[in-house]
């Protein structure tokens, strides 16, 4: 917590200076949420709000999702416009770079406040571990590679790896790839990449895999939280909303739900930074990261491409090599 406090102080100071010197018009960061152990995005142009900025193990959102909607300073119209300073963890930073590659955001309108990320705590895991709901917990304190959880006044200690998000456990680049100001020292990956491979379906037949997804997608209510929380889903109009031709019925039947998610994930090829927000936001707990993670690995395996690593690199799907994916085509 101590180092978080220091980072937090520095963040507030830097953000304040940026606004004061008129270097940016907007700050996007996190403030304490209305519920225990939550934070919420803070999007503000008001210096008075800045002392609410926080850094803690619950800053889960990928704030890059807000960038494509914020118009450049030269545009007339919407109020949310101008140059932006944004708080970014490793995966968020890669999403930002990916947006720059796709011409959705201009780098010179951005000040990236990088956070070397030690991993975020997944409340669902804490709830499973303790058998209690979030609001019944007294405290969750991270101390290095341990976490102390207090329930009914009784504190118990667990290894931090028990409660970190799966994608954090397998995170390759916890420090943002591109930043203007780094708050803290660069950190090394938490563990081997394979540590984050929970719920990956391997070693079962295609029929069994299809059956698995058929069952999972029966639950989907098509709220589109997975799409809307995703920084890489920036289409003005999503293909599911097309009506001529109407690719998909708007009804939440598993066939349509599955197709929607399959195509969405294919669209994310080379864009997804494995931030895991789709799975976290799903209100019916569909293991969506099992899909995005597979896509992330596939792109790496086939084309040696990792999303959001260099802002000058061409996007995956606009580029090609003379010789690749040979054995897949007759």
């Amino acid at each position: 917590m101590n180092s978080n406090n220091k980072i937090q102080q520095k963040l507030r100071h830097e953000a304040g200076a940026l606004l004061e010197q008129n270097k940016v018009d907007l700050i996007i960061g996190f403030e304490p949420g209305s519920l225990k152990f939550t934070t919420t995005p803070l999007i503000t142009r008001d210096k008075g709000d800045l002392d609410r900025l926080v850094i803690n193990p619950f800053i889960v959102n990928n704030l890059a999702v807000f960038l494509p909607d914020i118009k450049g300073p030269d545009l007339k119209g919407p109020k949310l416009k101008g140059r932006v300073a944004i708080v970014a963890k490793g995966c968020d930073g890669r999403s930002i770079v990916s947006l720059i590659q796709d011409n959705k955001v201009r780098r010179d309108n951005l000040v990236i406040l990088g956070i070397p990320c030690p991993g975020m705590i997944e409340l669902r895991k804490v709830e499973k571990l303790t058998g209690k709901d979030r609001d019944e917990l007294d405290d969750i304190i991270r101390e290095g590679d341990k976490v102390v959880i207090t329930v009914d006044g009784k504190a118990s200690e667990f290894p931090i790896s028990d409660v970190l998000f799966d994608n954090c456990l397998g995170c390759e680049f916890p420090t943002p790839q591109d930043y203007d100001i780094l708050l803290g020292e660069p950190t090394a990956p938490f563990a081997e990449r394979s540590a984050g491979q929970a719920r990956i379906l391997k070693g079962i037949s295609p029929q069994e895999r299809w059956e698995f997804w058929r069952r999972e997608f029966r639950r989907c209510i098509r709220c589109y939280a997975c799409r809307n929380i995703c920084p890489s889903c920036f289409c003005q109009r999503c293909f599911v909303e097309e009506s001529e031709p109407q690719w998909l019925m708007p009804v939440p039947r598993w066939q349509e739900n599955l197709m929607f998610q399959a195509i969405r994930t294919i669209h994310l090829a080379g864009r997804c930074s494995d931030c895991g927000e789709c799975e976290r936001s799903c209100p019916v707990n569909i293991p969506l990261r099992s899909l995005t993670r597979e896509m992330y690995d596939l792109v790496d395996e086939l084309f040696h491409f990792k999303a959001g690593m260099a802002k000058d690199a061409p996007p995956l799907m606009t580029h090609y090599e003379q010789e690749e994916a040979k054995d897949l085509i007759r």
Partner: peptide, 17 residues
């Protein structure tokens, strides 16, 4: 309303559920 709505991602969770 712009300030209130700024962080909303316009998904359907709160209305569907």
């Amino acid at each position: 309303w712009e300030k209130v709505a700024a962080k909303c991602i316009a998904c359907g969770i709160c209305t569907f559920l």
